[in-house]
Computed example of a mutant assay.
Amino acid sequence: MTLHSSDFGPAPLRRIGFLLFPGFPMACLTAAVEPLRAANEIAGHQVFTWSLVTESGAQAAASAGMHFSAASSLADAEGIDCLFLLSGPEAEFEDPVSSPGRLRYLARHGVALGGVSGGVFPLASSGVLSGRRCAVHWCYRSAFETAFPDCTAVDSLAVRDGAIHTVSGATAMFDLSLELICIALGEAAMNEVACLFQHPVIRSGSSRQKVPVLQSGRTVDQMPPAVKQAMSIFSENVEIPVGIRDVARMAGISPRQLERSFRTATGLSPGEYYRRQRLKAARQMVRYSWDSISDIAHAVGYASSSTLTLHYRKFYGVTPVQDRKQRFLPDTRGPVHGSPVLT
């Protein structure tokens, strides 16, 4: 992430708070805290401190069902350099007025704010991300861009825009903790912590996220150049579909060559891959937003909700309405189940 101490003001970030929402991904919390704990042991004294915060001060259940006690409520959170929001994409504030206002107050008074994984959703709803660039996990990007059109989502592992930090997932949070260790204790300490956890590659925050190719064991960055370029064009043209001939032209090859390359690399024709990409975007919005099915259909290039429903049921085995209901069924593991573990 190529951070420097000047990025954060006169002193490194050492007092870290984590604002936990119900159903937050536990992996993101441990990925943040464990490197800092190890750094304290290497230093022989407490360089970093951390505290758990919830909106009301009550316990928070992680998506895995484990409960975590909070040291304070959001209103009482003090003495921290940075506050990271950890949640799933469906998270909402219990108090939609006072709590976002409290975040804006902390930002005005020098506290750096951050969102990890789905935590970018409540962070954006507080207003502090308006007009900023932010890292959004590929699994949530379509839903996020629909909900917050005034934010610029990018596919980097992490983004710092001013004093706002957004991190796409758990291992990206681990990388950010390593950078904080480097700032506070130097590169040797960072390297030792990385080796303790067998984390051999310390990635830059500007590195692009790994995105799986549908029905493949490979990721987009491993595709042949023309196929990778076509996939990028498809992902950028979800709402207004683009013709396969036009995609081939933009990729610099003939439609026949694009067809052969796509089938060899993915087992799918370009048109089928594109349709499934649009359905994947639709599913993000079905599962992580409350937009109407009709609005979702138009957002992914379908003329009607009935056509979307037909294709959706064929591919996912349920209608969009059924999928949304299943997503929010109560479960003994926590308030919401089915959230992916994001890295």
Rank of each mutant, 00 (worst) to 15 (best):
P12M: 07
M26F: 08
M26Q: 11
C28W: 04
L29E: 11
T30I: 11
L52V: 10
E55Y: 05
A58H: 12
A60H: 03
G65Y: 07
H67Q: 13
S69F: 12
A75N: 07
S87C: 07
S87N: 04
S87R: 02
E92R: 15
Y105E: 15
G115R: 05
R132Q: 06
R132M: 07
A135R: 03
H137K: 08
R160P: 01
T166K: 09
S168G: 08
A172D: 05
L176Y: 14
L185G: 02
N191V: 14
C195E: 10
F197I: 08
S204I: 01
S206P: 03
S207M: 12
Q209T: 06
K210R: 15
V211I: 15
V213W: 01
L214Y: 13
S216P: 05
D221G: 03
A226G: 01
A226Y: 05
K228V: 01
Q229C: 09
S232L: 10
S232G: 14
S235Q: 12
E236M: 09
I240W: 06
M250A: 15
I253R: 10
P270Y: 09
Y274F: 14
K280G: 14
A282K: 08
S292N: 09
A297G: 02
A297N: 03
H298K: 13
S304R: 04
Y316E: 00
T319G: 14
P320L: 03
R324V: 06
L329F: 10
R333W: 05
T343E: 13
